[in-house]
Every structure is written in structure tokens, then in C-alpha cells.
Design a protein around this nucleic acid. Structure first.
Lengths: 120, 120
DNA sequence: TTGCTATATAATCTGTGCATTATATAATGG
DNA sequence: CCATTATATAATGCACAGATTATATAGCAA
């Protein structure tokens, strides 16, 4: 499981996204997190472990407590991956393909030797 | 399972991200996708179903083929969610918290070497 | 019709995720 | 040392993810 796998998988759980949202306001301990989520303490600890193994949060030690915080730069890889496709995702490339295919279907042939997509 | 759940979960699989990468170049059929990934055709169909149910891709019908393409605006919700926290994620808020706690801790005891370790 | 191609669906197996309760570990205070 | 607090880990059950093979459906073509 690579980093992107782990990051995306970690964020696929709504409880874990809620934990992220809470940590965006500042550090929180397991107790802090277990209370509002009405979920057992071991379950929270496990979610935190998943988030930490994904590199999204980090832990420090303060007495018996283990306050978690967002790990700087953790979201960059995700941001970059999405950003890489975001522009394409929104463009009309796909629609252009559809139009060309539609033309060649309905007209019986493609005009001037361009039957397939042109991506560049 | 809400939309973000499905989108993040869909992108947590490397095969599905590779499918997205391929579709960013243009439409592709199940055959087109099954070939380079050396994975069975039913497996590809299932991955495509997951991506489509997550709202990330869409299907059109062309004869017996069902070419898939990226669905416009599909990535916006993910982008927005990440963007919502991205700034905070990178800031020194967390470090400030740590420094303050560290000060109050160390005020009463001598730090022998490294008082705080991070778990892993 | 018959048959070929493209895709979807069913059945099945295996692994993993997420929850619980019970228990172990670690730091702190009396 | 002992008790308390904070957290982690173990054992377990259950549901779902992802792969395969086998089969069904749908369009096209001879």
C-alpha cells in the first residue's frame, strides 16, 4: 500500500474526516475526540493509528496524554494528484471525443483522416 | 455512504487511479483498460462501476462498446474538502500549541536530552 | 438464424476494515 | 507502592472489497 493509497483510504471514512476537521482547530487527545463522536476509545485510537500511518497526523507525548495534530505537508501529495487531473477533468476533451465519434458514426466515415481522438 | 466517502474510497485503489490517469487522455473502453492492466475484464468492469457510482466517470453507449470518460466537475467536492484544510494543515498553529505546552512542561522539570519523542 | 464481440452479472473465495469488550501498558499523584 | 488516568493492544464478529471463473445479455455482421 503506497502513500496515496493510504491517504485516500484514510479520508474515505467520515469519522476520520471529522477527526481531521477537529484537529484543524488545534491539538486534541483521544479523550477529546472520543467524547463528541460517541464511539469507543479503542475505536478512536485505531482511527488515529490509520491517520498517522497515512502520514496525515502526528503525535507528541505530554505526560500520559498523546495529543495529535495535523502533520504539515501531509496533504500535498493528495492535492498534487487531484490538481494533476483537475484541469482535464473539467475540460471539453471528453465532449470533443464524443462529437467526433458521433460524426463518424452518423456520417458513415470520419472526415479527412481523423477518426480518433486528438489529445495534443 | 456519502459522496465524499465514495470518492475517496474509489481513489484509494491504485488500479482505479490508473484508470483515471488513462481516462485523462481520452475515452477508453473496458477492453482498452483491461489490456495494459493485466487484470480480468470483470474486474475492470467492477472498478468502473465503483468509479461511476462515486460520480467520477460517466458512460456513453456506442454500439456494443461502453466508452468511459471523466465526468466534469466530479473532482470539485474533493478539491474543496482538501482546500478547506490545506492552509491550516501547513500553518504553524500546531507548532505554536506544542511550544506553549512544552514551555509549561519544562518549567518544572529538567529536560534530559529529548523529553518528547514522536511515536511511529 | 448463427456466431462473434463487448460488456455485465453471478457465484465464490480470500483478505481486510471497523466495531465491540476485555486487558495491558505507561505516566502521575498521594 | 498503589490507585488513577490516558492510551494502546488483543481477541473476536461481521460486513464489505477485490479477485477469479463461468455465464448471461446486447449489438453487429455474415
Amino acid at each position: 500500500m503506497n502513500a496515496l493509497d493510504q491517504s485516500f483510504a484514510a479520508l474515505a471514512d467520515p469519522t476520520r474526516r471529522a477527526i481531521i476537521a477537529r484537529l484543524a482547530e488545534g491539538e486534541a487527545t483521544v479523550q477529546d475526540l472520543a467524547r463528541p463522536f460517541s464511539i469507543s476509545q479503542p475505536a478512536i485510537s485505531r482511527h488515529l493509528k490509520v491517520l498517522e500511518e497515512a502520514g496525515l497526523i502526528e503525535t507528541r507525548i505530554k505526560g500520559t496524554a498523546r495529543p495529535r495534530r495535523l502533520k504539515p505537508d501531509a496533504v500535498e501529495a493528495l492535492w498534487d494528484w487531484l490538481g494533476q487531473y483537475r484541469a482535464l477533468w473539467e475540460t471539453q476533451f471528453q465532449k470533443l471525443d464524443a462529437v467526433l465519434d458521433g460524426l463518424s458514426d452518423e456520417a458513415g466515415q470520419a472526415p479527412s483522416g481523423n477518426p480518433e481522438r486528438s489529445t495534443s
